[in-house]
């Protein structure tokens, strides 16, 4: 498992990194935790001429309070996301999802930003971030730009990040008073999601006031379960109403077929897991 030879740079600031990127041409890859990039390089499915390591850029790491939102650095590890007190308080959905990623070793190396830019349809971080309506902050040769989560994930392993750009932070609104749950379905403990459902629910006096649901691995990008959300808003907080609404979970999805199950099975799972996720998020 030996990758092709490549040049290596480890800039100390975002500005320096952008400079390296500008000089390096198009055959360059950013390295975050390396938990996705290094395996594909070792298998020689990727052989960049240059690797730019973001690991020494301190400003990219950590979680900050930013008024009505949290500002999460791209290099914040899954482990930090899973255990950070600000996240636990304001967007526990992210912590719950991050805790299901792989194993402790991978969670200590793999990063929030790396997972989002990698945009694996079976990856666990994109759907929660989409459900939470986050904003992506990208630094590029022409300065900073902001991309809404709904526009960020563009296809199979494809995002709005252009060549020469770096994801620096993700801004996630605070969800005070919401319940959250990430329902992940796998065959073995350490596995990417076959299907998973991220749910946040705000209950108000026995009815569901607001709900946000993200689906993992039901298409080439994460999806919102819009039909379920619509059916649930204003519905009574009962298992029956949640089950009825969850029957819409597969609407508008386009899941793949693979060794873990065909598309029909995934559609079915989406319904069952949506029901379970919402019930758990609502604390029923």
């Amino acid at each position: 498992m030996i990758p092709s030879a490549f040049d290596y740079a480890a800039p100390a600031t975002v500005a320096e990194a952008l400079g390296v990127l500008a000089d390096a041409g198009d055959d360059v890859k950013l390295l975050a935790g390396g938990q996705s990039l290094i395996p594909v390089m070792k298998l020689r499915l990727a052989d960049p001429a240059m690797v730019v390591d973001l690991g020494r850029i301190g400003e990219l790491s950590g979680v900050r309070d930013d008024g009505d939102a949290l500002l999460i650095g791209a290099m914040t590890t899954h482990h930090q996301i899973a255990t950070d007190p600000l996240i636990a308080e304001h967007v526990p959905l992210l912590a719950k999802a991050a805790a299901t990623v792989a194993d402790p070793q991978v969670r200590h190396r793999g990063t929030f930003g790396g997972a989002l830019v990698h945009a694996d349809p079976a990856g666990d971080m994109p759907a929660p971030v989409l459900a939470a309506d986050a904003t992506f902050i990208l630094a590029g040769p022409n300065g900073e730009r902001r991309v809404a989560a709904a526009d960020f994930f563009q296809g199979y392993f494809t995002t709005a990040v252009d060549d020469g750009e770096i994801l620096t932070h993700v801004r996630v609104p605070k969800y005070a008073g919401w319940g959250a749950h990430y329902e992940k379905f796998t065959r073995v403990a350490q596995q990417w999601s076959i299907v998973a459902v991220a749910a946040m629910v705000r209950v108000d006096g026995g009815t569901i006031a607001e709900v946000r649901i993200g689906l993992t691995n039901m298409a080439s990008t994460p999806l919102r379960a819009t039909a379920v959300e619509q059916a649930l808003v204003g519905a009574p907080l009962t298992r029956e109403s949640i089950a009825t609404a969850s029957a819409h979970a597969a609407e508008g999805t386009d899941p793949a077929s693979d060794l873990n199950g065909d598309a029909a099975y995934r559609r079915h799972l989406a319904e069952v897991l949506t029901k379970r996720a919402v019930i758990a998020a609502a604390g029923l």
Binding site: V188, A189, Q191, W192
Partner: peptide
């Protein structure tokens, strides 16, 4: 071989 790595050839580990 489609199950050419441990991503697809599922060997259980202790939690399973």
């Amino acid at each position: 071989l489609v199950t050419g790595s441990f991503v697809d050839y599922l060997v259980p580990s202790a939690p399973d």
